[in-house]
Amino acid sequence: MDELDLKYALEAILFASGESVALQALARAIEKTPSETRELLRELMEDYDRGMRGLRIMQMENRYQMLTRNEYFPYIRNIVKATPASSLSQAALETLSIVAYRQPVTRADIEYIRGVQSSSSLDLLVDRGFVRIAGKLDAPGRPVTYETTPEFLKLMDITSISEMPKFEEFSGGIQLRLEEQPEENGQQ
């Protein structure tokens, strides 16, 4: 098979898979190196983006998934009784924001920042797949820490967590006079 065929082989795999597929698995399937595969995927993604196709391919870190383009959702809704997924509550959104910018972060840290108990929000975010347990902190009680997932990247329509705006952009204008204000930008 020549290069062109392999690009469409990836397309076929992504269609059949439905859910996101890791780059390594795709590379193995087409018997190419991960970097060659990534290049083919990049071309395929460009093909899809050119001319606003009904489908698009999203990249979340090293995972790829075929999805419908959100702009066409109203048309989908005309034919299927599709209701959008339920929205996250304010509490869940706040918790998710903290995980995104402070990861890996413990529940206690989240609760301190929010000033309120957050375990149910965290559980919901884990269930919805936006947050997962990252590991355990080497501290008394060995509390678990949380981090964001590829699904969170999909939520934000970004390829990598480093594409999130810097924390300072949100605090912009507000003079944070306290020296220990974090400089982190959410990089993992």
Partner: peptide, 19 residues
Amino acid sequence: QISEYIKRGESTYQELVEK
């Protein structure tokens, strides 16, 4: 403020369909 930002992303996310 970050919550507001994530909420804006959510409206697009809710309109993605995967099989």
